[in-house]
Every structure is written in structure tokens, then in C-alpha cells.
């Protein structure tokens, strides 16, 4: 089991790296468009962030427990949408950061810590800007 101190240190490092790379990060992201004009990317599912940015991720990401947690959070916040796409209650900067972490293939303990941290802090996280400001008080961020 990883100790908290080590985890915090690691998270800080990730956060710095994510900040550095922010400008270079490129997913299939686009600004909000209507569903009729949006081509469905092959092999992908789509989520929107609170700032109306569209992300398409490979279907295989759906088996990742962090992604599953994000969908659960969306369900708790907004319910399962019956008419449109899935929206996450986070902004695009935060989602990009999380996806970077997911892509780095965390070990099980780190992943669990991340999920716990997302779950326990999400209520006070309307955007990632606040998240960064409060980073020192939270387990991972």
C-alpha cells in the first residue's frame, strides 16, 4: 500500500507535467456542435464537459475504472440523459488532466486513490481552476 506522502508527491509531479503539456494535448476535441452535424468517430464514445467541449475517446476506455467513475458522477449530477449526449460535471482542462493520468496507466492503488479523490471532492469542483487553487489540501491534486 502506498503512503499518502508519496502519493501526494507523485500527484504534484503529474499536475506540473499536465500543466506544462496542456497546450500540446490533443484529443478528438471540438467545440460544441449539434448532434446532427457531428460525425460519429469510429470506435469512439463521446462526452461533453461543462464548458461544452466535445471529447471522443476509444470505446476501450469504458473499461477503465476512472472513466467509469466519471460516468457515475455524471449520472449522480445530471441523471442519465434520455435525449442527448453524456455531459460530465467538469471542465475540459480537468478532463484532459484526468485522461493524461489514465493514459499513464496508474497502478491499482494510485487509481483507487484518484477515484476516491475525484468522488470526495467533486461537489466543490465546478471547474479545474478552483481545483488547482485548493490542490494542497487534497490527496491527489
Amino acid at each position: 500500500m502506498m503512503n499518502t506522502k508519496k502519493l501526494l508527491k507523485m500527484a504534484k509531479k503529474w499536475q506540473q507535467r499536465a500543466a506544462l503539456r496542456r497546450k500540446r494535448i490533443s484529443f478528438h476535441r471540438s467545440t460544441d456542435t449539434t448532434s446532427s452535424s457531428t460525425a460519429a468517430e469510429k470506435g469512439c464514445f463521446v462526452v461533453y464537459t461543462s464548458d461544452r467541449i466535445r471529447f471522443a475517446f476509444p470505446i476501450s476506455y469504458l473499461s477503465n475504472s476512472v472513466i467509469q467513475e466519471l460516468l457515475k458522477i455524471s449520472e449522480e449530477e445530471f441523471g442519465i440523459p434520455t435525449e442527448g449526449p453524456i455531459t460530465l460535471p467538469f471542465d475540459s482542462v480537468f478532463l484532459e488532466y484526468l485522461i493524461r493520468l489514465v493514459q499513464r496507466r496508474m497502478d491499482g492503488d494510485t487509481e483507487k486513490a484518484l477515484i476516491t479523490s475525484i468522488s470526495s471532492t467533486r461537489c466543490s469542483l465546478p471547474c479545474s481552476f478552483q481545483l488547482q487553487e485548493h490542490s494542497s489540501t487534497r490527496l491527489v491534486f
Partner: peptide, 16 residues
Amino acid sequence: KREMRYSDLTEIHPGV
């Protein structure tokens, strides 16, 4: 509605 392809939807596992 989810802006994805039907063929991709059918690949998703139960639960998620």
C-alpha cells in the same frame, strides 16, 4: 443521441 456509431454501442459491456 450519444453521437456514436451503432456498431460501437454494441461493443459496450453490461454495467457501463
